[in-house]
């Protein structure tokens, strides 16, 4: 498990400034879809109760329904959890020395990139779209002098503030290095 207070390769004077994830709205469409799936077995029971009240009087039908509905529910629940993992493990950590970009691709694929603040050339915030504007979430692009030329913070809350903080940290870092 990744401990924020003990990041790998941390120096004694390193402090975590920001820990970012994608905006919760990104999960909303998933939650709505899976919510509908989870409610389907219950909806079927209610429907049959009103239109065929004698449907479950046959014990075998009730047994088959319980077996089918339980398996359907369990796999929908697992689908929701796996997509939540994909969301939850996508993290951007900004310290006073570096930026760490952790991207989870599915369950078994993961990319971790690290960027020293000295190599940051430019920080740009972008908000585009109605919901993005209303809820203030968007993208932050960090142009680098490294092998990976651009770091992207995807759909993070308050991207303008994040960009400002990172720019400030980059400036502070350069001042420290130039002394």
């Amino acid at each position: 498990m990744l401990n924020i207070k003990k990041l790998p390769g941390a120096t004694p004077d390193e402090k975590v400034v920001l820990v970012l994830r994608r905006h919760w709205l990104v999960l909303l469409s998933l939650i709505v879809t899976v919510g509908i799936l989870l409610i389907l077995p219950i909806g079927a029971v209610v429907f049959l109760h009103y239109f065929r009240p004698d449907f479950f009087q046959e014990p075998l039908r009730l047994l088959l329904f319980v077996m089918g509905a339980s398996v359907f529910f369990l796999y929908s629940w697992l689908f929701l959890y796996q997509n939540f993992i994909d969301y939850h493990l996508d993290t951007w950590i900004v310290t006073n020395r570096r930026v760490i970009n952790i991207e989870q691709h599915g369950i078994f694929a993961r990319t971790v990139s690290e960027l020293n603040l000295q190599r940051v050339q430019d920080v740009t915030a972008e908000i585009r779209g109605f919901f993005h504007t209303m809820l203030d979430y968007g993208y932050v692009f960090i142009q680098t002098a490294g092998e990976q030329q651009r770091f992207e913070f995807e759909e993070v809350p308050h991207p303008n503030e994040v960009a400002k903080i990172i720019s400030g940290l980059v400036q502070d870092r350069r001042e420290v290095e130039n002394k």
Binding site: M1, L2, N3, I4, Y81, Q82, I85, L89, I107, R110
Partner: peptide
Amino acid sequence: MSALSIMQMLRFGLSG
């Protein structure tokens, strides 16, 4: 499948 998912979550998730 749940055990594998939980293992990945607890292994790579932020402690919290």
